[in-house]
Simulated scan of single mutants.
Amino acid sequence: MNATIATTPIQARVAYISEPKPSKYGDVHYVGILFRDLSIADDDNPDSKIWKNLSSEDSSLYMAGDIVELRPRYDDKNKLHHDIFVIEQVNSPAPVPKNAVVATTTGDQLEPPSAPGQWSLKQIQAALSRPLPQSLLSTRREGGKDLTYISWHCANRILDKYAPGWAWEITKLELADKALFMVGSLSIPCSDGLIVQCASRTESLDCSSYGDPSSNAESMAFRRACARFGLGLYLYDK
């Protein structure tokens, strides 16, 4: 990509998204995304190919076929970067879980909101319902089956990004019959108003798994409340 092109906004198509790869600098996983400059008709022209390495979390914003604008920006060391803005999102050719809600209209804002209440509930659900990168998922053995799930701290970070201003509160806690019963409420401010979803969990006090009954119950209740907003909901499909 030459200097003239690099200093002007570029309209491009998401041509390829790689599998997540671990960074040598820590636990972060990165995904390579190939953008093709729409102003260059020849796909074999090397100037039409623009590679960007994004974190797995950031890469979940984009799907193959999306039309984006790459806007140049220089950092304090005069190094060129490109901010990515989605112009039009199309359905990915890859299969999507049946419960996933994907925003496909041109007018939907796909960049993360910058303030609480900026997005509508529909926009938040569309962002949270996207299939998650494999690097953000965990697996545990339960009842003779391997269960795939999202950890509470990953869900926390995703809410921070797509639902700023969210709040979690334990609203009920009871002990009975050697078990702990917990109810929590997840509140997300939207342009439609404050939306609240509740979820519960019962955990045995004789905890044989990792953690303790209280933290395990809260983790599950929190993740269930997140699923009510779409986050990881497809993982509950049997």
Rank of each mutant, 00 (worst) to 15 (best):
G65N: 09
P72D: 00
R13P: 03
S129E: 06
S151N: 05
W152I: 07
L175G: 11
R228A: 06
D27Y: 00
D76A: 13
P22T: 01
V14D: 01
S60T: 08
P97F: 09
G143W: 06
I40L: 09
N78D: 15
V28D: 13
C190D: 01
V102C: 07
D160Y: 06
A225G: 05
R71W: 04
A6D: 13
K49A: 15
K52T: 08
Q125E: 13
L38E: 10
K122E: 15
T8P: 08
K77E: 04
E174N: 14
K79I: 04
A217N: 12
H29F: 08
N99C: 12
M182P: 01
S55M: 09
N45Y: 13
P131K: 07
Q89K: 14
P131E: 10
K238H: 12
Q11L: 12
G117S: 13
V196Y: 04
Q89R: 13
H29P: 10
P189C: 03
D146M: 03
C198Q: 11
Y62T: 03
V14E: 03
W152Q: 01
G65T: 05
Q109C: 05
P95S: 11
Y62K: 04
S129R: 07
L233H: 08
G143K: 13
W152A: 00
A103W: 03
E203F: 07
L34Q: 12
P116R: 07
S138W: 07
E69W: 06
K172V: 10
K145E: 08
S187R: 06
K178H: 14
P97C: 10
V31N: 02
F222C: 03
T106G: 08
G232C: 01
D146P: 00
D42I: 01
Q134G: 12
T139H: 10
K178V: 05
N91V: 13
P72W: 02
P116C: 14
S59P: 00
E218D: 11
S214G: 02
L180G: 04
P22Q: 07
F181N: 14
C190S: 14
I124Y: 01
G144D: 13
R157T: 08
I40T: 07
K49Q: 15
L231W: 02
K145V: 04
C154F: 15
E218F: 06
K122H: 09
A225Q: 05
W166Y: 14
Q11C: 09
S48I: 09
W168C: 02
D58T: 09
D42M: 05
S191G: 01
K21F: 11
F85T: 06
L38P: 00
W168S: 05
S18E: 14
E203W: 10
S56I: 10
A12T: 08
C226N: 09
F222V: 11
A179W: 01
D146E: 13
A127K: 03
W51D: 12
N99F: 13
N216H: 08
G193H: 11
G193M: 08
A41H: 11
T104Q: 11
K77W: 04
C154Y: 10
F35R: 01
E203H: 12
A167H: 11
S208I: 12
